[in-house]
Design a protein around this nucleic acid. Structure first.
Lengths: 121, 121
DNA sequence: CTACATTATATCGTCGCACGACGTATTGTC
DNA sequence: GACAATACGTCGTGCGACGATATAATGTAG
């Protein structure tokens, strides 16, 4: 069976960190692009500051959860200033583990009637 | 319509804080009882230290999310040492808002294929 | 009866992290 | 030519989690 690093010690992720991983989950992006994706995805509710973002990126790279792809995008639509990042397999594992952790908490919240049930119609 | 305080500025809750509110969502408990409930509910994965717990309790009381009930439990099964806490209506609102926030993130994670879909059978 | 574990509450110091402020530079628009 | 937007980054502050530590009552095993 696939035995990589254990994601557990990294949980729970901070909300900001999870937003960044989530943002990269469907394709590589550059820093500023992550900022904009998170903002639009959350309807402007989550506005990561650059201080938050670049600190997180540094840590994620150090921990091997994201990496910089070697090949630049098609040279015509490239921007020299941009630095791209993508999830590593381990980064994906951590993000998935965090999502599963949240799912469990949600089901408890549901059991305690904090949320409408799935079929309470 | 019911117009109380807005829970939004308090979100996202820290995982530890949410665990405490969640613990009180189905009835009042005392500090040590919260510790044990969280531990058993999470299968020992979340072990709040007393430093974490009593700091959180202090803040939650200050912010009006929890309160101490005036009446002690039936005097035979009481323990003088215990201090009980219960959710205020506002505390319930905040916990619910946090649960809803998590639900949204989970649905995004699902959309990006981080979790098995509901009907992927 | 005397240790030791458990129950129970509380404080303190450290460290990690989010965040706003600031800084620099390029590109695009009015 | 000015200003907004794009894009990267650092630094200081402050809050919060957590382990360590303290205190004390109760319950249990030897």
């Amino acid at each position: 069976m696939k035995e990589g690093r254990d994601p557990e010690p990294y949980l729970p992720l901070t909300p900001a960190m999870f937003h960044v991983l989530l943002s990269l989950a469907d394709g590589e992006k550059h820093g500023y692009g992550i900022l904009k994706e998170v903002s639009s995805r959350t309807e402007g509710k989550v506005e990561l500051s650059t201080g938050t973002l670049y600190g997180i990126i540094k840590r994620l790279v150090n921990e091997g959860m994201i990496e910089t792809p070697e090949n630049r995008p098609s040279p015509d639509e490239d921007d020299e200033r941009r630095r791209y990042y993508r999830l590593t397999p381990f980064g994906l594992q951590v993000a998935t583990a965090e999502a599963e952790r949240m799912e469990k908490i949600i089901s408890i919240a549901r059991a305690k009637n904090l949320l409408r049930g799935l079929e309470t119609a």
